[in-house]
C-alpha cells in the first residue's frame, strides 16, 4: 500500500512532464529530446530561489512558467519552424527534429554545467512527514502530487472544453485538415510547443523539492517522458496520465524490491512490453 501511494505520487510528477511532451509531440509534431533539460532548468530555478534567495521554491513558478514559455516559443519559432517548413515529408521532419533537439539538449546541459558545475544539487523543502493510511509520506511529495493534479486537470479542461483546445486536438489528429478549417497551424503549434515546455519546466521545479538532481540528469527524464507518451498513445493526454502512474508505481516497486539504481531498467521493461504487445499505446487504436 505504501509503495502504491509513493508510486502514484511519483507518477503524478512524471505525468506533468509527459503531458508537456505530449503536447509538443502530438500537436507540434516535434519529438523533443531536450524536454528533460527544460525540467532541469525548472529545477535549477527552484534551487536558486530556495537557497540563494531563501524564498519558497514554489514562488519560482512565477518566473519559471513565463520564462520557459518564452524560451520554448523562441526555440520553436527560430530553430524548429524552419525545419517544419523545409521538410518535404513527415519522416524528414522527424529526423531533423530529432537531431536538432538532441543538439539542443547537449547545448543546454553545457550551459547548466558552465553556470552551476557538475555537482549534485538538493535543498530541503517541506520535508516533514504527513500520515496517510497509517504510513508516512513527505509533505513535499504530497504537494507535488496536488500540483500535478491541478496541471493535468487544467490541461484536460482546456483541451476538451474550450475552442482553442479543440483546435489543438484537431491539429494533432490531422494537420492538413486542420488548416483547411481555418486553424492557424503554425501559430497553434508554436503555442503548444511553448506551453509544453513551460509545463515540463513546472514539472522540474516540483520534482526538485524532493529529488536530488544534476546538470546532466535531463536525458533520463526525457527517456521516461518519451516512454510514457508512447505508452499512453501519442497526443493522448488521458493515456499519458495513466501511463505516468504505471511508470511511477513500477519504478517504486523496482526501487524497493530490487535496487534503486535500476529505475531506468524498469522504464525500459515497460517500453519493451509496449513495443511487443501494444505499439499503438494503451488506449490507442491500431494504426494503419
Amino acid at each position: 500500500m505504501q509503495m502504491l501511494i509513493t508510486g502514484i505520487f511519483l507518477g503524478g510528477v512524471y505525468a506533468i512532464i509527459a503531458v508537456g511532451l505530449s503536447l509538443q509531440y502530438g500537436v507540434s509534431r516535434i519529438m523533443n529530446l531536450a524536454v528533460g533539460e527544460m525540467l532541469v532548468a525548472g529545477a535549477f530555478a527552484a534551487f536558486w530561489f530556495s537557497t540563494a534567495q531563501s524564498l519558497n521554491p514554489y514562488l519560482s513558478l512565477l518566473v519559471v512558467i513565463p520564462l520557459a514559455f518564452g524560451a520554448n516559443w523562441l526555440i520553436y519559432r527560430y530553430l524548429l519552424l524552419p525545419l517544419v517548413r523545409r521538410a518535404k515529408t513527415r519522416g524528414q521532419l522527424e529526423v531533423d527534429s530529432i537531431l536538432v533537439t538532441f543538439g539542443l539538449s547537449f547545448t543546454l546541459v553545457g550551459i547548466f554545467l558552465w553556470a552551476f558545475g557538475g555537482e549534485f544539487f538538493n535543498y530541503s523543502f517541506l520535508s516533514v512527514p504527513v500520515e496517510i493510511f497509517d504510513s508516512r509520506y513527505g509533505q513535499n511529495r504530497v504537494l507535488a502530487f496536488v500540483i500535478a493534479f491541478v496541471v493535468c486537470a487544467g490541461l484536460w479542461i482546456w483541451l476538451n472544453h474550450t475552442r482553442s483546445g479543440l483546435s489543438m486536438r484537431a491539429i494533432s489528429v490531422d494537420t492538413r485538415a486542420a488548416s483547411l478549417v481555418a486553424i492557424d497551424v503554425e501559430k497553434s503549434s508554436n503555442f503548444a510547443f511553448a506551453l509544453g515546455g513551460a509545463i515540463a519546466a513546472t514539472g522540474g521545479m516540483v520534482l526538485s523539492t524532493f529529488l536530488t538532481f544534476d546538470a546532466s540528469i535531463g536525458i533520463v527524464f526525457t527517456l521516461k517522458a518519451l516512454v510514457i507518451v508512447i505508452m499512453g498513445g501519442v497526443g493522448d493526454i488521458r493515456g499519458a496520465i495513466v501511463a505516468a502512474l504505471v511508470l511511477g508505481i513500477t519504478e517504486t516497486v523496482v526501487a524497493r524490491l530490487i535496487d534503486p539504481g535500476l529505475t531506468l531498467a524498469a522504464a525500459y521493461v515497460l517500453f519493451l512490453l509496449i513495443l511487443l504487445f501494444r505499439p499503438q499505446g494503451l488506449f490507442g487504436r491500431a494504426q494503419t
Binding site: V95, L264, F271
Partner: peptide, 23 residues
C-alpha cells in the same frame, strides 16, 4: 516498427546498460 521507437530506445540505452552493469 517506426523509426521513432528506435531513436527513443537507443537514447537511453547507454544509461540503461550502465545502470545494469553497476547493479
Amino acid at each position: 516498427l517506426s523509426g521513432v521507437y528506435f531513436v527513443i530506445f537507443t537514447l537511453g540505452l547507454a544509461e540503461l546498460t550502465r545502470q545494469v552493469f553497476t547493479w
